[in-house]
Design a protein around this nucleic acid. Sequence first.
DNA 1: TCCAGATAGTAGGAAGTCCAACTATCTGTG
DNA 2: CACAGATAGTTGGACTTCCTACTATCTGGA
Lengths: 172, 172
Amino acid sequence: MGLEFDPIEEARRNWQKYEWGDGRAMVAATSITRAHQILLAEINAALASFDLTFSRFEVLALLYFSRAKSLPMGKIGSRLQVHPTSVTSLVNRLVQDGLVERLPHPTDRRTTLVQLTTRGGRLAPRCAAALETVGFGVNGLSDEQLDDIADTITTLRSASGDWTNPENPAQL
Amino acid sequence: MGLEFDPIEEARRNWQKYEWGDGRAMVAATSITRAHQILLAEINAALASFDLTFSRFEVLALLYFSRAKSLPMGKIGSRLQVHPTSVTSLVNRLVQDGLVERLPHPTDRRTTLVQLTTRGGRLAPRCAAALETVGFGVNGLSDEQLDDIADTITTLRSASGDWTNPENPAQL
DNA sequence: TCCAGATAGTAGGAAGTCCAACTATCTGTG
DNA sequence: CACAGATAGTTGGACTTCCTACTATCTGGA
């Protein structure tokens, strides 16, 4: 990139210099944004040879884990925490690639079931292996660091109401 | 959301159950992705009343911090770590909103300078204040947690070559 | 001097995300 | 039973990001 310094530390200095605050929250938020950008690039590079993206792989994996290898569109959205319209476009592409199929729900005609195809079922574990090989882009971190990040972000997610923990009614 | 459990923990269990790995890296990567999604939504909500997004605010802030309140397109891209074409589209929109101007570089005719307008210069600090008010979406975390996350991600960024530290020639 | 290669920026296109609005279907209450 | 409101999914549009390809300009070595 040609940078001789950490651009995020530079941002913190300026944030403080102009008295916009201590920069703590800004640095944390910017760091997470940048981390996401880096990980996504490495993950997608690892999946490129399968003609998959991380988002589409997540759908495949979710279906693979399900009992009947199928789930309603809406359930996919709530599990992956993405908007219904995102599910629509991801599934469109997966159907196009022959990795999943849309099926009518047996009793609720509003609902569309997404069913993993044989090809999709074969592909998912191979992608998982490829992702494990590249360590999901976080190879530079120790097991402890990975767990620390995950734990802290769990706090963040919980505070933002990512899910309702039955053991913690306070969240309601 | 209607979820009664943490979808990421559920993913870890399944990852292990199908023997795809211990799920550590997957959980860390997925957590960062989700954290990014949450923060971006809160940040953009805080900036919506200014008709700004986080990306466009970052450009504004970077120019505000610069000596002449102007920078070349390319420098903006390298500081914010985004692709040149992203800078083009961000600046297009900022120009359209009258917050920045494109100026020719005095000596290098290839280069385009982006100059903060008076309006842009007035807006930047107000947006910064709004972001500080919502704590950049990380209000649920303590100062220590914020610093821990930032530190760990610095390791990750450094490992991925985000910048070349002059004090650490090993990165070259 | 002059041209090959590097550098700066833009255009067009793909992908993912979200939102608002819309259709179709179900469900519960009066 | 019937209808208002909830629920499921899609369409169209906005935004950011990246990639490839392209033009314009600069620079250094032959």
